[in-house]
């Protein structure tokens, strides 16, 4: 029994790391631009399809596929930001919402046209391998996905902390006007931020492609999942997103085990409501509220 709980907890932590990568993509865009990417889940699914396509066509496994997906989605993010989204920064929320809903519809339409409505699964040998850690058997695909996601998150943190453009991004997030005053070009910062945000989503998508079947209609679930994590961790906070991701990963695992699996997300929404009402800055955020 204990072993089962341990397995669920470990599995939750592993998938939670990937969730955290998705959520960080959402939170970084919001933190810098105050724009909520309601099409985030669609971008994750795009990453999943890229992972699927790279594996089926070129036999590229998930980890390099995640890097390729990150690069592709980075380009898409920069492109969308420069062409369209930049005009919507600072517009009313409902306007931004409709813009991203339109993105979501277009991307879903393209997914349906290119890949069809059926679930696509990666038939890689890794899906059947396991690692044994201290008597605990863990799916190899999960461990690899989590490890890669963790490396990516750490790389992103290092990038934001130690590079010039990363510090510019943080400056713009802290104080947009002040950043402009000291000569940071907000347009460029926004473009890089949008690229990073989408790259996180894409990489995470490619990483989970051996775990979940890719399907266009998964997208809203990923979007809402990312929202829940980001709100619980505090909108705009990277550490909050990481802890929130792990928390939701574990909580989902246990909710599926202990209560009705169909109702596991009800628990997440209940938590979301409680956090929104009682601690809108998030459980771990503190810098900025409302």
């Amino acid at each position: 029994m204990v072993e089962l709980y341990l397995k669920v907890a470990a599995g939750g932590l592993l998938i939670g790391t990937v969730y955290a990568l998705i959520a960080i993509g959402l939170t970084i865009i919001f933190g810098v631009m105050r724009v909520v990417n309601f099409a985030h889940g669609e971008m994750v699914v795009m990453g999943m399809y890229l992972g699927y396509a790279l594996w089926t066509l070129f036999a590229i496994p998930a980890i390099p596929a995640a890097l390729i997906a990150a690069v592709v989605l980075f380009g898409l993010g920069v492109f969308l930001q420069v062409t369209v989204v930049s005009r919507f920064v600072g517009r009313p929320q409902h306007s931004q919402f409709i813009l991203f809903i339109a993105f979501a519809l277009v991307i879903t339409g393209l997914h349906l046209m290119l890949m069809g409505p059926d679930a696509r699964s990666v038939m890689a040998p890794i899906s059947f391998q396991t690692y044994s850690v201290g008597g605990l058997r863990l799916d190899a695909a999960r461990v690899q996905a989590a490890a890669t996601a963790l490396v990516m998150i750490l790389a992103l943190v290092a990038f934001l902390r130690f590079t010039f453009i990363g510090r510019a991004i943080r400056a713009a997030a802290d104080n947009p006007l002040g950043a402009e005053v000291v000569g940071i070009r907000s347009g460029r910062v926004y473009a890089v931020t949008a690229g990073i945000g989408l790259a996180c989503a894409g990489a995470a998508g490619a990483l989970v492609s051996p775990l979940f079947d890719a399907q266009p209609f998964l997208a809203p679930e990923f979007t809402l999942l990312a929202f829940i994590i980001v709100i619980i961790g505090g909108l705009g906070s990277l550490t909050g997103a990481l802890i929130g991701g792990l928390l939701i990963g574990v909580a989902e695992g246990f909710a599926a085990l202990l209560i009705n699996p169909a109702m596991k997300s009800m628990f997440s929404y209940g938590l979301l409501i409680a956090v929104l009402l009682l601690r809108p800055a998030g459980l771990f955020g503190g810098r900025e509220a409302r």
């Binding site: 519809l105 277009v106 069809g116």
Partner: peptide, 20 residues
């Protein structure tokens, strides 16, 4: 399959871009 969703999305995009 999916063309309808694409067209719908593009139309909404057009409206929000040009008639905000």
């Amino acid at each position: 399959y999916g063309l309808s969703t694409l067209i719908y999305g593009l139309t909404v995009l057009g409206v929000i871009l040009y008639m905000p």
